[in-house]
């Protein structure tokens, strides 16, 4: 059973969360600007330490321009240009098969796994093209985490699931350090209290919602800058869903989040920006309020009013 410490009716801001406290102790935003200053040697972000771009949207972390994706002979995405602002939740919505997952998987080069998939156009993280020849996908994916539609805990213990990323990347120098990373990540994912007595139990023994939070904890443990989520709640019941939504809402202060959903209500509840995809095209994008209250494109309007599913 998915016992969250909160109920969906409670406003998110009122929740006294270990995760939030943790985030406050560690000013992530600040760290993130700090690292800009001397990340020029980094293979991905070889940009100049320009001042943070402050627009109404916020600083742009990722940007795709004229992105075209083919699976073999069929084109799945057509000329997608979209910006992903920092520390906000960007929701990708649209009817199923419109290319949301495909787009999301371009952002951490997960499409490389699929033989037939061809990506053209540019995808930039900060100012560096992540499809550039010198880019190391291993490092890229460490910086851009991903949570999948169906919870996919490894057939290992809860502890080992979360410790997996830090271990492969060598993020902890000692057992204690690893323990604290695992604990912090589980706390941030609001799972710690439920599993603290059985960290050695297999990850697959958890309920669906817990498994998904475990996967989020697993992603957070690598300390990524951006988290991609592909319909993270679609396999979950409503209570587990609201738990994840609340979690996403507090994660956005520390991370930049891109989330695919085909529930408009969910997009409305948790996202600040919304992009509407239709048959491989980006039809409309803007602040969530604007897209939902006053969509420009008739296709968006139809979708929002429930005429296209």
């Amino acid at each position: 059973m998915d016992c969250m410490t909160m109920t969906p009716t409670k406003p998110l801001s009122e929740l006294p969360l270990a995760a939030l406290q943790f985030a406050q102790q560690k000013p992530f935003v600040l760290q993130s600007t700090e690292r800009e200053a001397d990340m020029t040697t980094d293979s991905v972000s070889s940009r100049s330490p320009a001042p943070v771009e402050v627009t109404s949207v916020g600083r742009i972390r990722m940007q795709t321009s004229d992105l075209n994706v083919h699976y073999g002979d069929t084109q799945a995405l057509h000329d997608i240009s979209l910006e992903i602002p920092e520390n906000q939740v960007t929701a990708l919505i649209g009817p199923s098969g419109c290319g949301k997952s495909t787009y999301l998987r371009c952002l951490n080069r997960m499409n490389d796994v699929i033989d037939s998939c061809r990506v053209e156009g540019s995808v930039k993280l900060d100012d560096a093209d992540i499809y550039g020849p010198e880019v190391d996908v291993v490092e890229l994916r460490a910086r851009i985490g991903m949570v999948f539609q169906k919870p996919n805990p490894f057939p290992k213990s809860i502890y080992d699931n979360v410790a997996y990323g830090p271990r492969i990347h060598g993020l902890a120098d000692s057992r204690e350090e690893l323990d604290s990373i695992v604990m912090e990540s589980l706390e941030q994912a609001r799972l710690f209290d439920e599993v603290k007595d059985r960290l050695q139990a297999p990850g697959t023994s958890l309920s669906g919602g817990q498994q998904q939070r475990l996967c989020i904890a697993r992603a957070i443990a690598v300390k990524p800058e951006i988290i991609l989520m592909d319909e993270p709640c679609s396999a979950l019941d409503p209570i587990a869903t609201s738990g994840i939504e609340a979690l996403i809402d507090d994660l956005k202060d520390a991370y930049t989040i891109v989330m695919v959903t085909h529930s408009m209500q969910q997009a409305a509840r948790v996202s600040q920006r919304t992009a509407y995809f239709h048959m491989g095209q980006l039809v409309e994008t803007g602040s969530t309020d604007k897209v939902f209250s006053d969509p420009r494109d008739p296709r968006t309007r139809d979708y929002i009013s429930g005429r296209i599913g």
């Binding site: 997960m110 796994v113 291993v138 490092e139 997996y164 492969i168 992603a219």
Partner: peptide, 17 residues
């Protein structure tokens, strides 16, 4: 399941890892 492999790769595993 492919999802396990993708889960590992998405965390920044090399393929062999």
């Amino acid at each position: 399941p492919l999802s396990l492999k993708e889960g590992a790769l998405a965390l920044g595993s090399t393929r062999s890892e």
